[in-house]
Amino acid sequence: MSVVNDNITLDMFQPAQISADESDRISAPSIGFWKDAWLRLRKNKAAVVGLFFIVLIVIMAIVAPMLSKYGIDDQDVVNRQNLYPRIPGLEWLGFDGKDSTGMDTYELNGVKQNFWFGTDELGRDIWVRVWAGTRISLIIALIASIGDCLIGVAYGGISAYYGGLVDNVMQRVIEILAGIPNLVLIILFILWLGGGMTSIILALIISGWIGMARIVRGQVLKLKNQEFVLASRTLGSSDQRIIWKHLIPNVLGQIIITLMFTIPGAIFFEAFLSFIGLGIPAPAASLGSLNQAGFENLQIYPYMALFPALILSILMISFNLLADGLRDAFDPRMRK
């Protein structure tokens, strides 16, 4: 493999100082924790889609009931009972207001306007009820999750911060409470407190904070002893700096992820409670009670179950996708 190369000239054999600085340069500017997490979340298509649907559903839940001329309990059994959904432009998808036998329910009742999601057996507009119900479900889930978060962070933080006997006692209490299935705890509490939004929220908080407390305690304990914290302390960082630059971002990331997984859990449990007759009492609507009403009429009026189930499912999927995305985005091991 001897090279016979005319391009190599004698003058190329002069010593040349080649700068090594080039290879030592750090190629990318340093990016902060939050910005980095956000950049990575944005790259996760599934999480972005999830976020988009969450925002869309939240906006609809706020706006749609306000814009409709019907209230959630405006009944009219005479003129508009059990109208099938009719959405102009989507007739080809079956939203043409005709029932399973092909009869146009709007013609039969002489109704001119369109009910996009149809009406129920009391003639109430399902569109309004679905979005108002979504609002209730979201409020329940949000307050319950924030409640979980506050109690869990306080409990877990105190347990980890004081350590020793305090930690020991607090952990034994958690161990016993964790032995009670959520299902049992929630049902007993609602039986005691009675149905309604407040008792559902309370029941969800009472059964939900343990997970958060465990995660916060674990994180704080782990971080307290980690080498980078020690390294930072050795380098002369103040406690303030360690708390704000190291502990908070790491723990907060975990808290946000847990919160994001708690919300769909709470939405599910609210729906579940309606199914077993412990949900929001009529005439108010939640996604759960609408689903339950829909399922009761499933064989005769399948459309009544369709929209609540669809919105509930999309909401749950979106929250799970976003939570998965956040978990990956906050995981520093994923940093490239």
Partner: peptide, 21 residues
């Protein structure tokens, strides 16, 4: 993700309506 997100009663409803009814 679908399995985790979609409540079992929705699946049950879908199955019951399409496969049963």
């Amino acid at each position: 993700v679908l399995g985790i997100s979609i409540p079992s009663f929705v699946f049950a409803g879908l199955l019951q309506y399409y496969i049963g009814v």
